[in-house]
Amino acid sequence: MALYNNTVMEHFMNPRNVGEIENPDGKGIYGSPVCGDMMQITLSVDENEIITDAKFKTFGCGSAIASSSMATELIKGMSVEKALELSNDKIVEELGGLPAVKIHCSVLAEHAIKNAIYDYAQTHGRKYAGLEGYNPDAEHHDDCEGSEEGGCQGCGNGK
């Protein structure tokens, strides 16, 4: 008996891609410890705009750590363009599902990646359709507010 399925537990106990890339091409941070979850993603991107490496550091619950691990696995080898399309639904699907109250943890991973790519685009002078109108500093509680569970209770600010 466990709170999470085997895939989630496996990624939680043996997370892939832990750490921080030195001199990354893109770096994104999302969330804050006040909310109970915070994620940092660093990326290496080659001249063909392919993500050659991704690493994460996460402060958060089991599903936040598993989501970070899965998300970084998924985007490695992807083009930046394709990585921008990675949705939290896809992360949840690859993990074989998360409890309803824990869906926001996968949203966090999606956003941390977007922020890292935004940083890459800014520092490398690139433009992507998927980043149009994207504001990396948007209060992440706003996302919680619209979530299916009726608001993120982790920080009490979602409602």
């Binding site: 537990m9 619950c61 089991g62 750590i65 109250v101 993120c152 982790g154």
Partner: peptide, 26 residues
């Protein structure tokens, strides 16, 4: 929660705050 889960993996049961809180993320 991540502490709780990893300890549980090794057969150790502790709680975060209070048992009742585990269903409500606050």
């Amino acid at each position: 929660e991540s502490v709780l889960l990893m300890l549980d993996f090794n057969g150790i049961c502790v709680s975060t705050g209070s048992a009742c809180s585990s269903e409500t993320l606050g």
